[in-house]
Protein backbone atom coordinates (compact mmCIF):
# COMPACT_ATOMS: atom_id res chain seq x y z
CA UNK A 1 0.00 0.00 0.00
CA UNK A 2 1.38 3.40 -1.00
CA UNK A 3 2.38 5.65 1.90
CA UNK A 4 0.52 8.55 0.28
CA UNK A 5 -2.85 6.78 0.56
CA UNK A 6 -4.94 7.85 3.50
CA UNK A 7 -6.33 5.07 5.66
CA UNK A 8 -9.09 5.07 8.23
CA UNK A 9 -10.69 2.68 10.73
CA UNK A 10 -13.34 0.44 9.19
CA UNK A 11 -16.92 1.34 10.06
CA UNK A 12 -18.15 -2.19 10.62
CA UNK A 13 -15.81 -3.03 13.47
CA UNK A 14 -16.76 -4.91 16.61
CA UNK A 15 -14.54 -3.97 19.49
CA UNK A 16 -14.03 -3.82 23.23
CA UNK A 17 -11.52 -1.73 25.15
CA UNK A 18 -9.73 -2.42 28.40
CA UNK A 19 -7.29 -0.17 30.20
CA UNK A 20 -4.40 -1.44 28.09
CA UNK A 21 -5.80 -3.29 25.07
CA UNK A 22 -8.35 -3.03 22.28
CA UNK A 23 -9.89 -6.27 21.04
CA UNK A 24 -11.18 -5.68 17.53
CA UNK A 25 -12.81 -7.74 14.79
CA UNK A 26 -13.78 -6.70 11.30
CA UNK A 27 -13.61 -9.00 8.26
CA UNK A 28 -11.06 -11.57 9.45
CA UNK A 29 -11.92 -14.78 11.29
CA UNK A 30 -9.84 -13.98 14.36
CA UNK A 31 -10.13 -10.86 16.52
CA UNK A 32 -6.93 -8.86 17.01
CA UNK A 33 -5.73 -7.88 20.47
CA UNK A 34 -3.98 -4.52 20.14
CA UNK A 35 -1.72 -3.44 22.97
CA UNK A 36 0.89 -0.72 23.43
CA UNK A 37 2.21 0.69 20.15
CA UNK A 38 -0.27 -1.38 18.07
CA UNK A 39 -3.14 0.31 19.86
CA UNK A 40 -1.57 3.75 19.40
CA UNK A 41 -1.13 3.10 15.67
CA UNK A 42 -4.70 1.80 15.31
CA UNK A 43 -6.15 4.80 17.16
CA UNK A 44 -4.18 7.17 14.93
CA UNK A 45 -6.48 6.15 12.06
CA UNK A 46 -9.62 7.50 13.71
CA UNK A 47 -9.89 9.91 10.77
CA UNK A 48 -8.32 9.45 7.29
CA UNK A 49 -4.56 9.59 7.85
CA UNK A 50 -1.43 8.76 5.82
CA UNK A 51 0.80 6.03 7.30
CA UNK A 52 3.74 8.48 6.97
CA UNK A 53 1.96 10.87 9.33
CA UNK A 54 1.55 8.05 11.86
CA UNK A 55 5.26 7.26 11.55
CA UNK A 56 6.04 10.91 12.38
CA UNK A 57 3.62 10.76 15.31
CA UNK A 58 5.20 7.60 16.73
CA UNK A 59 8.73 8.95 16.21
CA UNK A 60 7.85 12.10 18.17
CA UNK A 61 5.94 10.26 20.91
CA UNK A 62 8.63 7.68 21.58
CA UNK A 63 11.65 9.83 20.73
CA UNK A 64 12.68 7.49 17.90
CA UNK A 65 14.39 8.12 14.59
CA UNK A 66 12.16 8.17 11.55
CA UNK A 67 13.73 4.89 10.36
CA UNK A 68 13.09 3.16 13.68
CA UNK A 69 9.52 4.41 13.75
CA UNK A 70 8.92 3.24 10.16
CA UNK A 71 10.28 -0.24 11.01
CA UNK A 72 7.91 -0.42 13.98
CA UNK A 73 4.80 1.05 12.34
CA UNK A 74 4.77 -0.49 8.85
CA UNK A 75 4.26 -4.13 9.93
CA UNK A 76 1.43 -3.05 12.25
CA UNK A 77 -0.29 -1.09 9.47
CA UNK A 78 0.04 -4.11 7.15
CA UNK A 79 -1.57 -6.37 9.75
CA UNK A 80 -4.37 -3.90 10.42
CA UNK A 81 -5.08 -3.63 6.69
CA UNK A 82 -4.99 -7.44 6.27
CA UNK A 83 -7.49 -7.81 9.15
CA UNK A 84 -9.76 -5.21 7.51
CA UNK A 85 -9.52 -2.97 10.58
CA UNK A 86 -8.26 -0.04 8.52
CA UNK A 87 -8.50 0.72 4.82
CA UNK A 88 -8.98 3.47 2.26
CA UNK A 89 -11.91 5.76 3.15
CA UNK A 90 -13.84 4.67 0.07
CA UNK A 91 -14.17 1.13 1.42
CA UNK A 92 -14.79 2.03 5.03
CA UNK A 93 -16.73 4.41 7.22
CA UNK A 94 -14.76 6.85 9.31
CA UNK A 95 -16.92 6.64 12.35
CA UNK A 96 -16.76 3.61 14.62
CA UNK A 97 -19.74 2.94 16.77
CA UNK A 98 -20.28 0.39 19.48
Amino acid sequence: MSDSVRLVKAGRTFYRKTSDATVALCTSNEPMVLRGSARIVYDAFESPTRPDDVIDLVAAAFDMSSGEARAAVEPIVEELVAAGLIGPPSSTTAEITS
Partner: peptide, 20 residues
Protein backbone atom coordinates in the same frame (compact mmCIF):
# COMPACT_ATOMS: atom_id res chain seq x y z
CA UNK B 1 -6.28 -11.96 34.84
CA UNK B 2 -5.94 -9.39 32.05
CA UNK B 3 -5.25 -12.14 29.47
CA UNK B 4 -8.32 -14.03 30.71
CA UNK B 5 -10.41 -10.90 30.21
CA UNK B 6 -9.02 -10.32 26.71
CA UNK B 7 -9.82 -13.93 25.75
CA UNK B 8 -13.42 -13.42 26.84
CA UNK B 9 -13.61 -10.14 24.91
CA UNK B 10 -12.35 -11.91 21.78
CA UNK B 11 -15.34 -14.27 22.03
CA UNK B 12 -17.65 -11.30 22.70
CA UNK B 13 -16.73 -9.45 19.51
CA UNK B 14 -17.19 -12.64 17.46
CA UNK B 15 -20.64 -13.13 18.99
CA UNK B 16 -21.51 -9.50 18.32
CA UNK B 17 -20.69 -9.91 14.65
CA UNK B 18 -22.92 -13.00 14.53
CA UNK B 19 -25.74 -11.14 16.29
CA UNK B 20 -25.48 -8.05 14.06
Amino acid sequence: AKRCHESALAVDVCLERVLA
